[in-house]
Every structure is written in C-alpha cells, then in structure tokens.
Design a protein around this nucleic acid. Structure first.
Lengths: 148, 148
DNA sequence: TTTCTTGTTGCAACTCAGTCGCAATACGGC
DNA sequence: GCCGTATTGCGACTGAGTTGCAACAAGAAA
C-alpha cells in the first residue's frame, strides 16, 4: 500500500507565502528539490540537487530551510533506521501519516498507511491526554524478498 | 501507564556469557550502568557513569559495546525526538515494545504500552509480509500538563 | 522607481557524535 | 600457567549540523 499522493508543484512556496514568509532564490531551489523528489533525500543530497538550479546555495542554507519547514510542520524528518550512517532524511508531509519499513538486508524502504496506526494515535491523544504534533513509526527488519 | 518491568541485576552479563561473548572490566561497568539506569541515557552519560566504577573506560569502548548490544537485540536505540541535540538514547529491551512520547515543551518522556501497537505490528508482519526486528514509535507534542 | 527595514545568505570556523587503525592488553579455554 | 584471539585505549579522523558575522536582497511603503 504505497502512497499514491500527488503534489501540486510550487505548493510549498505558496504555503510559505501564505504565511508571510519571504521567498528567495536559494529557498525556491531547495523547495523545488523537496517537492519533486521521488525518494527520501538527506541534507547533502538536497544540497547537491539544489545547486544544479542555483550553484551558490550553501550547506547552511539547506539546514536553515529544513529547520524552517520542520517548524512549519511541512516536512517530516526520518532516520530510516540509520541504514546509511547517522544522517536524517526528509519528506514532504502529505495526507495521512504513514509507517516506514526499512529492510536491513537490501535497504528498501516501504511505506504503509494503516487504520490501526490512526487508531493508536487517537488512543494516545485520548487516554494519555497527549497532544500529538509529530508521530514517527519506523520499523527495521526483512522485506518480503529478503526474509527468505 | 509507565512500565513496571524489573530487571535482575547482572542479567545482561549472563545473557552475553550464555552467547559465548567475552566479559571484561569495561564491558561489565557499561552493562551495569545500562541495567541500573532509571532514565534514558545517551552515550556520553553512559561513559561518565561507567568511568565512576572503572576510570579507564574509553568513549570508543562505550560505542563498541552499544553496537554489540544492539546487534544482540538487547537494547533499543532512541532519538526521543531530538529534544537535546542529535544524539541517541539507549534503553534495555524488556518485555513488550512501548511507545515514547516526548513533550516538546517540558521535555518529559512518557512511555506507553498498547494492545493497538501490537496489533499494528502484526498487521505489518502479515499484510506486508515484513519480518520485524525492531519497531520504534516516537511521538512529539504536548503532555497533559503542557497542552494547556 | 527609489528607499528602507528586516529577514536571509554565504562563508568560514566550529562543535559534537560516532568511527577506525593500531599496538598493547587481558579473557578464558586448554 | 600458557596462548590465541577478542577487546581495549589512544589518537586521529569523518561527517552532520550549528553559529557569528558582514554583505545582500525581498518586498512593503513612499
């Protein structure tokens, strides 16, 4: 059950404008990379791709922009079970929260949406009286092909 | 619903011995710190505490031992939503998996065990045919006192 | 269009977690 | 007690992420 979500190009830009946040060249380049990504990217991959449309973009600007987007609740930060080092991966926050399953053998990442996940979150909100802002469920193990 | 699990002191040591893993002074000191911890500790806190019983323990030994315990499935590695920097926290793996809720305002960590979490994991195992080795659910938001 | 304020940027230097190669050491089976 | 081998401390290193600062540019207002 992979996510078939689609995203209007320039949507992130519009959302930021709408919130009165200033738009700049480097920022546009970075947002564009995140919106058009077809897999999970880490900060240095985002930097490299952003530099293709604006070579002057600096590493620190990437981190600052990612921080902004996190604070605005527009992207999620993932570990993906540290399959490749200690860094973080980012993805556009769209629709329902989903689960990330990382295969520890082949490295494949599978996404999954589940009613039961939503129900679990409601339970936390209600029984624990906890106001959820971010929920991250990551699972490590062996995927269908690798479980043998 | 905090975890009322208790741990026999020296249990980690026994488990490692049982698996034919060599026991050493530094290793004993580190295991002891992890077993007697009453909160989530990061690597540098574990180092400092371990050095109280064996001052020669080195940082790299702590990391190597944590790696060993992770590989043996005896501890879990947590981010706790990066409340304090980028480091990781460790805890003895006991009984059922539980959820960590981190309050982004006061920093309190709440643990929670839920039938629904177990049921969600079974779903992943069955419907996705994914063999789960580790499952980590971390939630960030506001706790009862801070949600206002 | 020009001016001005204020948020943003690139740069360079830094911090901090975690890793690694190596020679010295010590565990624990014999 | 001896010996092979796993483990250790050390020091140097890597790579992610942060920060202070002076230069710059977005965009509102004149």
């Amino acid at each position: 059950m992979p996510l078939p979500e689609t995203e209007i190009p320039g949507r992130l830009q519009a959302l930021l404008a709408q919130r009165g946040i200033r738009m700049t060249g480097p920022r546009r380049a970075i947002l564009n990379v995140i919106e058009t990504a077809n897999k999970h990217l880490d900060a240095s991959q985002i930097l490299r791709k952003a530099q293709k449309s604006d070579p002057s973009v600096d590493r620190s600007t990437v981190y600052r922009t990612l921080g902004l987007l996190k604070r605005q609740g527009l992207i999620d930060e993932l570990d993906l079970m540290h399959l490749n080092g200690e860094g973080h991966y980012y993805e556009r926050k769209l629709g329902r929260d989903h689960i990330h399953m990382a295969c520890l053998r082949c490295g494949k990442i599978t996404e999954f949406v589940s009613e039961r996940f939503d129900s679990l979150k409601s339970q936390l909100e209600q029984e624990c009286r906890f106001r959820i802002l971010v929920a991250r469920l990551e699972v490590g193990g062996y995927c269908t092909e690798c479980r043998r």
